[in-house]
Design a protein around this nucleic acid. Structure first.
Lengths: 141, 141
DNA sequence: CTTCTATACTTGAGGTCGCAAGGATCATAG
DNA sequence: CTATGATCCTTGCGACCTCAAGTATAGAAG
């Protein structure tokens, strides 16, 4: 129960702040961060989908939006014509660097301020043990 | 990050199981449980909304569905014509008692099995400290 | 080469939810 | 009594996401 409640409350707050300041969804931000830390700042759409826990169709539509905003671009793959890469553009890079700052501050305020460093580790450990929560975490947020 | 991932994965799994077996959304279930434990098995719609962290409009539409299914009923309030109560019907009571059983088993499997009793308390404590997570918890799930 | 299966992606339809606006009712103050 | 403001609820609209189905490509087997 607490888990669900906490999530609903936190994501609503974080999402609305992110949206108000940067015009980004939490999912948008999530995708941009993944790309930011990816090698060559590019990823296959399918891997992107898995790492942010969306379906393939979800990623298609989300990237449509980010492409329209010029934050990411498509790129074909030479060795396999089925795959399309999503690449972070310069604008996208700037965007995520801006947004990351305020987003981390928001997280710190809503989340981090409640816990001691030790408790944070504990929480991370406990949450990390949950099934299916292991998709990709080459990221510091 | 882990928090968001864990939530996405868990709710998808729990929700699809609940839907497959009982044709209930996680939110539906949540509302039914709230009513089940409420005094007289009835609540004002607005309080229901706050306790499950939905907006008023969300509750209206969700209850439309549950009413259509005969699980809850509307009831006018004599002392204040603005408010409408949502009351659990007999069918709703049966439904929630059935669903609760399998849902708790699912939770146990996905969630509880990862932790010792002590760790559960720890996790509950940590999550409970998050802001806005304090809405209503007269419930054992 | 052809066929069969698996994978990557897109699209159409449908569900859930929030926001903003509007209607009804209540409470309070003049 | 009337005006004002607050509260409860509903509705139109749009955002986001999933599922199912369809297209295109790849790889392996006959």
């Amino acid at each position: 129960m607490r888990f669900l409640r906490a999530h609903a409350a936190l994501t609503r707050e974080l999402s609305s702040r992110l949206e108000a300041v940067h015009e980004l969804t939490l999912s948008d931000f999530d995708v941009l961060v993944q790309l930011y830390y990816a090698e060559g700042q590019r990823m296959r759409r399918i891997d992107l989908a898995r790492s942010v826990l969306l379906t393939a169709s979800g990623i298609t539509r989300l990237l449509d939006g980010l492409e329209a905003g010029g934050l990411v671009a498509k790129e074909r793959c030479d060795s396999d014509a089925r795959v399309t890469y999503a690449v972070l553009t310069k604008a996208g890079e700037r965007k995520i660097e801006e947004a990351r700052e305020s987003h981390l501050a928001d997280i710190e305020e809503l989340f981090g301020s409640q816990f001691s460093p030790q408790e944070r580790d504990q929480l991370a450990d406990l949450l990390g043990r949950l099934p299916l929560a292991h998709t990709a975490e080459p990221c510091s947020a």
